[in-house]
Amino acid sequence: MAGPVILIGLPDIGGPWVPTRLADLREGQRARITRIGGDGCVRQRLLDMGVTRGTPVRLERRAPLGDPIQIQVKGYRLAIRDAEARLIEVDTAAHGPA
């Protein structure tokens, strides 16, 4: 077998935490993603965009009508609708209150 193999374990997401939805974060609040709900297209799309378990996330702002939201994830900005943001559970304790 030529070429390098890199093996990364799944991030440790243990510890006591309160489940919150990404959609419920305040503007500017940070958290860590703990679970992605939904299925099929929506779920795959979120995963493909880097919304994966263990990833730190920050809600940057809401659109003028409150929906969609702009988040910062893996160093870039992503807009998602409230409906999708409700599928994503986050742990705010992992970053403490922002």
């Binding site: 099929g40 297209c41 929506v42 799309r45 979120l46 965009m49 969609p68 702009q70 870039y76 900005r77 992503l78 807009a79 998602i80 609708r81 999708e84």
Partner: peptide, 12 residues
Amino acid sequence: GEQTPFVMELPP
């Protein structure tokens, strides 16, 4: 049918 989810990059 399923609307494509609105998951959109806001590029720099």
